[in-house]
Computed example of a mutant assay.
Amino acid sequence: MSKAAKSQEEAPLVLREEEGAVALLSLNRPKARNALSIALMEALLAQIEAVGADPAIKAVVLRAEGPAFSAGHDLKEMTARRADEDRGRAFFSETMQLCARMMQAVVNCPKPVIAEVHGIATAAGCQLVASCDLAIASREAKFATPGVNIGLFCSTPMVALSRNVARKHAMEMLLLGEMVTAERAAEIGLINKAVEPGEVHSEAMHMAKIIASKSGLTLAIGKRAFYEQVEKTLPEAYDYAAEVMVRNMLARDAEEGINAFIEKRAPVWEDR
């Protein structure tokens, strides 16, 4: 094996950097368009759990090395397992279960996660964008759930997609399998904003730093409450949210924040 190939093989599949209280996680399989192999999904899951447990981190920016955000599952890896005795069933099941755990880890992470998207985000790559709390994309980025084009309906990406955009928009993407521009993705709610290619990182970091200036406890309470209430009936959601508000009011940071507002001064957060 050449030194270059060995270096590529040994390089971390997810890179982690920090800018103050913001963690930057970068998918690092650029030559494979950041296809979500088992190893990459395991690495991302581990990093999401690590930043979620790190008290010094308040926001996460999820980005990617190379020309694409993510082309989705590693179809070459999956196809190779058709030679197994069970025609790949066990491996396919492992892949989908791990993917589900990883996507839910993004949603369940107590720190807000912002997708910073360039290039393509297709199939499970589009699912990953939809699973993030916020998303900023280059105007040159494109999104798709193209499984229908190869006889493999994007059923798991559909879960995240249908929780972000209206039903008919989701079905349009799923049934047609065509690329969607960043501007259209913003119109239908898949991403927050489409910006010029050179502004994607600065815009994502601008949002991340604003978020990181807040109480970490408040962010964690609010993110969890958002995803909990959205699945409930209206009366159940109000009952749940009211209880969350009561518990939040009793937190030290809420008391500090309200006093700071009344006293016209900047609050000092202790994340408790």
Rank of each mutant, 00 (worst) to 15 (best):
M103F: 12
M96A: 07
R87V: 10
V106G: 00
E178Y: 10
A83M: 10
M158I: 04
R163S: 13
M173W: 02
N108L: 06
T156F: 15
G147T: 09
L176C: 07
D84F: 13
C99V: 02
A121G: 11
A105V: 00
C154N: 13
K168N: 14
T145N: 12
N108G: 03
G88H: 02
E85L: 14
E172L: 06
I120P: 03
G88K: 02
R82A: 09
A100K: 04
R101P: 00
G151W: 15
E178L: 14
C154G: 08
R81H: 14
M171T: 01
G177E: 01
E77G: 04
N108P: 01
R87Q: 10
M179H: 14
R81F: 12
F143Y: 15
R87D: 12
K142W: 10
T79F: 15
M158T: 11
L161I: 10
G147D: 05
M173T: 00
I136T: 07
I114Y: 15
L175F: 14
A186M: 09
A137Q: 08
C109T: 00
V180M: 14
H118R: 13
T156P: 01
R81V: 01
A80N: 09
L175T: 08
A115C: 09
N164W: 11
R163C: 08
I150Y: 15
Q97T: 11
F92H: 04
A166C: 04
C126S: 09
R184H: 11
A144S: 14
C126L: 15
E94N: 04
F153L: 13
R101H: 05
L161H: 05
N149W: 09
V117P: 07
V165N: 01
G125E: 04
E116N: 14
V113I: 15
I114K: 08
L190R: 05
C132Q: 07
L176N: 06
V107C: 01
I120K: 05
L161Y: 09
R163Y: 12
A83F: 13
R82M: 12
C99W: 09
M78Q: 13
F143D: 03
R184P: 00
P112N: 03
N164I: 09
D133Q: 06
D133E: 06
G119N: 06
T181D: 08
L175H: 07
D84C: 05
N108H: 10
A130Q: 06
A115H: 04
F143G: 03
E77N: 05
M179K: 12
M103T: 10
A83C: 07
M173D: 01
L134G: 01
G177T: 00
I136D: 06
A160F: 10
R81D: 01
F91N: 00
E183S: 09
I136H: 06
N108D: 14
A137C: 13
G88P: 04
K142L: 13
A135G: 03
S138M: 07
A115F: 11
G177L: 02
P146C: 11
A124Y: 15
T122P: 00
K111F: 03
M171K: 04
A166I: 04
I136F: 08
A170Y: 07
M173C: 02
E116M: 09
C109A: 03
L161V: 11
F92P: 00
T122M: 05
A123R: 08
R81I: 00
F153R: 11
A182R: 02
L174H: 02
A83Y: 07
N149T: 12
M102G: 00
Q127F: 14
G88R: 01
G177M: 02
M96E: 11
A80M: 14
A166L: 14
